[in-house]
Design a protein around this nucleic acid. Structure first.
Length: 277
DNA sequence: ACGAGAACCTGTTTGC
DNA sequence: TGCAAACAGGTTCTCG
């Protein structure tokens, strides 16, 4: 489900509902997702006030007034939904957590495939925690530029497609936006990362930023089931140039190519063989 | 050391 | 129509 724009959309959707609220009650409906919930999770969160929400890579960081940060990674199918006070918390087949806030609203987390996970980390040790320690640069941050990307790619023979999915180089990209950014930059997904030149790296940075910003503006991409915290679907999928468009005509002006689908490291890549080199 | 592939799960779509 | 295979927004481990 969620790459950077979708996680950002969820964070923004949750913020007005959660910030300033205390968690009155937190119920776990099972002991684990991908990993076990942290020890005493409910006890550590109950009674705490939520002071801030932020996104880092594909993680949602919920800052609590007890000095802890409640981290959530949504995996493929994780989903947070807000149920305002009075509204019935509608059925979710795979609901694994439910929090009740002081204002009576409820927050539920559902995740059919359970590839998501949560953890609690001390706020003053967040950057050094095991989830964040190895993460690469934030693609929408100030210190992401062509030189940084080129340094991350240096010496790597892995295809540029795979290098961009590596969260330790750039943090937050996933399959959709890597395909879209490579198309916009005119770079073939199979090209060795270490052989992408300086000018191409600079262009790639520009296109990565542009596609992520446009997707956030559109509320993310809803392929099958993505929705923001308030249940709204995103609509960036209507602006895809290549993703899930195998066999269709290339959208680039003057290009007569057709979009091709290949598999790299078990994941689908979509690209135009005639204008991505 | 590095990269490809499998594994982790469940649900939905595709193809015979 | 029905069933099985393929496929899905992510990460992490193993094997060669």
């Amino acid at each position: 489900m969620p790459e950077l724009p979708e996680v950002e959309t969820i964070c923004r959707g949750l913020t007005p509902h959660l910030v300033g609220q205390s968690v009155r009650r937190l119920v776990l409906y099972r002991a684990d997702l991908r990993f076990a919930f942290p020890p005493h999770m409910a006890a550590q969160i109950e009674g705490a006030k939520i002071i801030r929400l932020a996104r880092r890579a594909k993680f949602i960081c919920t800052y609590l007034d007890n000095g802890q940060v409640w981290l959530t990674h949504l995996g493929m199918t994780g989903r947070y939904t807000i149920w305002p006070k009075g509204a019935a918390a509608g059925a979710e087949r795979h609901r694994h957590l439910e929090a009740t806030l002081d204002n009576g609203a409820r927050l539920s987390y559902s995740d059919p495939r359970r590839f998501g996970y949560m953890d609690l980390v001390a706020a003053d040790a967040l950057a050094e925690c095991r989830h964040f320690k190895h993460l690469g640069v934030e693609p929408l941050g100030r210190d992401f530029n062509g030189a940084v990307l080129r340094a991350g790619f240096a010496g790597r023979k892995t295809p540029v497609k795979n290098a961009l999915l590596n969260q330790n180089i750039v943090a937050g990209l996933g399959n959709i936006y890597v395909c879209e950014a490579l198309f916009r930059a005119g770079i073939a997904p199979k090209r060795a990362a270490g052989r992408v030149g300086a000018a191409k790296c600079t262009a790639l940075v520009r296109h990565i930023r542009a596609v992520l910003k446009a997707a956030i503006q559109a509320g993310g991409s809803s392929l099958r089931d993505f929705a923001g915290a308030e249940g709204h679907a995103g609509y960036f999928q209507h602006q895809f140039d290549v993703y899930h468009r195998a066999g269709e005509a290339c959208t680039k002006r003057g290009c007569r190519g057709r979009i091709k689908r290949i598999v790299q490291s078990g994941r689908a890549s979509f690209f135009c063989p005639s204008c991505q080199k």
